[in-house]
Structures are given as structure tokens and as C-alpha cells.
Design a protein around this nucleic acid. Sequence first.
DNA 1: TCTACCTGATTAATCGTTTAAGCAGAAAAA
DNA 2: TTTTTCTGCTTAAACGATTAATCAGGTAGA
Lengths: 368, 368
Amino acid sequence: MAVVRQSPNMSAIAAALGVSAATVSNALSGKGRVSPELADKVRIKAAELGYVPSLTARALRTGRSGVLGLVLPDIANPLFPQIAQAIENAAAAVGYGVLIADSRGDIATQTEAINRLLERGVDGMVVVPRRATRIADIGCPVAVIDTPSTPGNTIAADHWQGGELIGRHLVQLGHRRVLLIGTHRDSNVQNDRIGGVKAGLGPGVDCDTLWIEKVEGEGGEGCLLGLADRVAAGFTGFAAVSDLSALRALTELQRAGIGVPERVSVTGFDNLIWSPVVTPALTTVRMDLATIADLAVAALMRAIEAEADADGAGSGRVSSAPDRVAMQLIIRQSSGPPGPGAAPYPAPGPYPLHAKIPTHPTAGEPQA
Amino acid sequence: MAVVRQSPNMSAIAAALGVSAATVSNALSGKGRVSPELADKVRIKAAELGYVPSLTARALRTGRSGVLGLVLPDIANPLFPQIAQAIENAAAAVGYGVLIADSRGDIATQTEAINRLLERGVDGMVVVPRRATRIADIGCPVAVIDTPSTPGNTIAADHWQGGELIGRHLVQLGHRRVLLIGTHRDSNVQNDRIGGVKAGLGPGVDCDTLWIEKVEGEGGEGCLLGLADRVAAGFTGFAAVSDLSALRALTELQRAGIGVPERVSVTGFDNLIWSPVVTPALTTVRMDLATIADLAVAALMRAIEAEADADGAGSGRVSSAPDRVAMQLIIRQSSGPPGPGAAPYPAPGPYPLHAKIPTHPTAGEPQA
DNA sequence: TCTACCTGATTAATCGTTTAAGCAGAAAAA
DNA sequence: TTTTTCTGCTTAAACGATTAATCAGGTAGA
């Protein structure tokens, strides 16, 4: 029986055409001097034989693996799929593969993950650092995705501006007492978002910040946040800095019989998968991850290119001036004018805000 | 200034010790014949110079890249982080890297993604196929993670058994009219789960199945599911085959003023990130992804090994007998005995079921 | 003492590609 | 005609590891 051939190499093509392997290489890469006719013949023969170049051999020779590393702080973060997808997309578009590394747990694990990627010879890496950590200079180009206020950062969504969008939205709706909900006090991203919301709300609005880590430190994980008390105290806006916290707030308020959005409003961040399908659908702010990923990968490509040219030198962080990408407000049903403290629910019947609800993740009416 | 040395190679070690590169290789790999003393000296020198083997060169020579591919049907699926994490973990434990590929979109994209991975020379791949697709024989070992009822499958959670856990749980609580909620009619996983739930409920329970795709086909994306009507019709159990659908059901019911779990119960599947933190926390069923990933990777390792031994031959799917891994029931607050149709909410005050709530993802009391 | 065998190393080929250098012949410049 | 330049290809040396084959020298058995 016909043995399945190994995938043919350049020598096979060369032999079939009676030329040298170098000529085949030149013909396919378009680099050396090859007559157009021969180049055509080579290409045709390559296709005919089903030639697939060995990226391994190429990597060995050129010193470039064609692979980027993606280091994630906590792979359980629900934002991760979007980031991974965006990076994988952007990388694939320029012919790169993406090797993932989970740095879940402590900083030591993050360093170890980075080293694993380095050993595998990645040409560059995208790092979404753990909260409050900085990425040291390592032996290859690194694009850090964090928040613009983090020193040494390269590419980021403009979390502060996103916060402003939320703040302005709430104040325009008429909210004058807003509770900000964050999870981790030491997160630069969350602090930027909170700062932005406050700035957007302006001086006339009374704000307080609830850190879930603190509440849970006292009440145990998954405990109630005491939002009903806050409503009683006059809070009508609940601006969480993550859709996960927003969801927690929303369900807790609903559970307590407090109408959203008739009485109070809830907003989130990141447009996570569930935000369009919960009832009421969450008003939130989304990052333009496609753009961020494109910028990150493009910056890496430049750095890799530069490293190849001026050999030995530039192996630092890419793109000294941080790129900040604007966020977009997605207004759905969970936000509205603050209502009276009376009946938690409107008259029974169909959901009053029932309407064409935007779908995840591109829809909604993004507002700059 | 001291130029930063390139990372040294075997020849550097060999030269430093006055031996040949082959000896260094043998000493480090423990394969050839090297005197123990020399081997020690080599190891010490290697550490001293900070030697890092070139996986690329090794891959070229041995034909093994040390990389596995991970193909995902839809990277936006919230289950993905858990899968990716589990696979990355299991792979790292055996010294393998993981290259991701997103086959979002159609089957053509899935095929293309697989080809990209093949070109990159992965030694094997883990595929989570799109709904209702089968993975053709490709040129390397493949571990498919799907559901045991899919033909040609290799490793899977026992979705049917997971469904039975939910079904038995609901019937024991006293539910006699249960609505099953699925999203895609053609999903083998969902059909297995639904079958399991029905089996667990037994013959005495009245069941109906609501397919969200159909509802949305009529009402638009994100529309209401009409669950309030179902409650009016006497349904007290709402068993979604995904936590995302469960969340949708939960918020819709809460929004309609229907108490969960006092009046009706809601259960989900997969123990996704939000299930422990919503109020009430979701009763759900989790897959043992760590075990599944370990099995998948182990099967791939065996296949890769076998392929290396009996050269040319076995490049098919691994492990003919499908491994099915038991799922675990996690009882939280969203399920309870069915209540009277009266007051949607109990007396105000602290959440009656407030208790130490298990945290994500390992906690809860898994019940076989 | 002579052959056989074992030990501990070396040599050299190999994986598949890239690329600098070289070379023969033709075309252009002198 | 001679020199120079260009064209189109080949040669050969990498890249860094693995590994089969070989070899020198010591030891043991006959």
C-alpha cells in the first residue's frame, strides 16, 4: 500500500525540479534573485506536493519563533476570553501563534510563567499583570496591558475616561447619591475607574466606595453587601467597577424587592457575557479590546523588528508613550432616573422596558 | 561595557570544559555513556553559565515540538477560562506548552485553526468541537472533549449523570413540574444534560423544555423568556443546562417579583464564575475539569509516545474507550422546596438563607 | 600473550531552512 | 576587444540540538 509520505521539504521540491534547495527558498520567499518563470514553477510544484514549511527549522535558522506569549494574571477572570480572543486574532493576522501561560496565584508563578514562555522562545509577550505588580525587564519585547496610570505601561483602555462616561450618565439621569463598588483596593484599574466615575459625577454628587474584599473579610465569601441599607440611606446609583460586582449588586437588590431601574440604577464595567441577557440588561462600559490587541501586537512587531535590526540592544518594553484606547458606554435597561421609595415593582404585566435588547458583545449603542 | 551574552549553547559548555558537545548532551540527558564525575561537572557548568536548551533546535532534531494545541469552539464561552486553565496546567505539568486557536464562527474556521496548529508543529491537540461537528482524522493525535454520547469522542464529563443529580435534587425537594431551559437544540452536551435531568426527575414529574434559540428567533435577542407565565401555569422548578441561562432565568423571575427559592427553584450547570456570588447563589453542577484535562493530556502523551515508537502509524484519535468523568452537585441557595403562590417575598430583614456560602470554584459540598 | 569486551569519550551526520558568498554566462560599458 | 556589471543560479555554512557510529585504552578471559 502507498505509504503516507511525510510532508515534503524544500529539497523534495528542488529535486523534483532539478534545482537547488536555496533557489526554492529564494523563490518562495521572493528574496534572492530568481527568474520569474522558475519562481512560478517552484510555487506550482510546492502547491502540487502540498509543501508546508517547517516553522521549527525556520525558527532555528532565523532565531524567530513566530510565537507570542500571553500571560494572564488570573485565567478565571471572566474578561480573559475576550482578551485571549482579541490577542489571538491580532496575532494570527500577522502570522503569529499565541502560547498561553497562566500566572494564577502569586507573583512567583507569574515570573515562572514568563520564564516558561521565554524558554519556549517566544518572540515577544503580552502581559496582563496581576494587580499591583510590575513586569521587570526580561529578555524579549513585552507589551503590558494594564491601565494608563501604571508606570511603565504600554497599552491600555482608558479606564478613567470609561468611569467618566458612567459618572456623567448617572448624573444626567438625576442621581445624587452614588455608591461605588470595587473588589480590590490595590487594583490600579479599579482605582482609575472609580476616579473617573467620581470625576464624571462632579462635585454635586455624594459618593461612597464599598470594597467587597473588606465586606467579605468580615462576613465571609459570598455574603450580602448590605445594599438594601444603602438604599434606605438614600443611595440611588450603584456603580460597580466590574460586571461581576454589578451582577452581584443587581441580584441582591432584586432579592430585597428593590426595583431596578425604577428605583435605583446599577451599572457595571467590561460588557461581560451575561450583561446583555440578565433582566434588566446591564448598562456598562466596554473596552475596545480588538483595538487594544491590535496596538499591542503591532507594538510587539515593531520591537521584534527593531531587535532584529539593531541586534542585541532593544529588548525592553515597547512603545514608551502609553497608548490609551477610549471606552464606550453601552446603555441598557439597568439604569434610569431614580424613582420614589414606594412600590418596588410596577403593575404586573409585561416587562415595561421590553424592547429590542442589544446583543453581546458588539451591539448596543456605544457612545463616545 | 560588558555586552550581554547570548544565552550559551551546548558548545559553550563543551568548550569551557574541554569536551565535545555530544558529551554535554549525553551528560544532561543521561542517555549516553558519561562518567558520573564528568556529568556532574557538566551540570554544574551548565547552571553556572545559565544554560537554557533551545527547544527549537531540539524540536527540529527530534521532530517533537513539546507543544499542544487547544482548539476552542467559541472562545467567548464563559466555560473557556476553566478549560484553558485546566489544560494549560496539565500540559505544563508534563513539560508541554499550549498554543491556543479560536475556531469562532463556522466549521471552516475550525478546520483552518486546526491547520494553523498543525503547521506550527504541535505534537497533539485538544479539541472542544463546535456543536454538532465531528473532528476528522488529522495528522496528529487528538483528544476530543465533548460528551460521551458523541461518536468518536474520547474524554468528557458525564453530562447525563450531572443532569440526573439535578433531577434527583429537584424531585427530592418536592418539585413536580419542571421547566428545562436549553439554548441550542443541536448541542449534544445540552441534550445529554436534559436527558439526565428528566431521568433523575423520574416519571412522576411533568417536564417541558424551553429552547432559548427558538424564543429569541421570535422575540429578538435578549428578550424575556416568559417565565412568569410558566410559574402561573404551575412550574416550580427551572433547570437550565447552563449557568448563563440560569442567571437569565433567575433575574427574570426576580424581576417579576417571584421569590427564589421560596416559591420556585433555579438550577444551572458548570459552576461558572458568577454562580456563587449572585443572590441567591446558584445551585449548579460542576465538571471536574482538572481530571478531564489530566486525562486528555495523559491520553495525548500516550499517543505521542506510541507514534514515536511505531513510526508512521497511529495518528488517529486517542483512547478508543471514552473516559467519562463524574460531575458534582453543588447545592447553594437557589433551590429549595416549592412554595405557595402567595407573597413573593418573606418578611423583610436579613436574607433568610444567609449562611457560609461556598466559594468558587472548588467549594460547596459536592455530592456524588 | 592474544583476543574480546567494556567504558568513556569523540566524530560526524542529521533535522529543514536561510543566507552570505561564489560562479558562469550574458549584456552593457569602455 | 577588454573590462565591468548584472543576472540567475549553486555551494556551503550556519542555527543548536540529538544520536548512530567509531575509536582509544583498559580490563578480563582464554
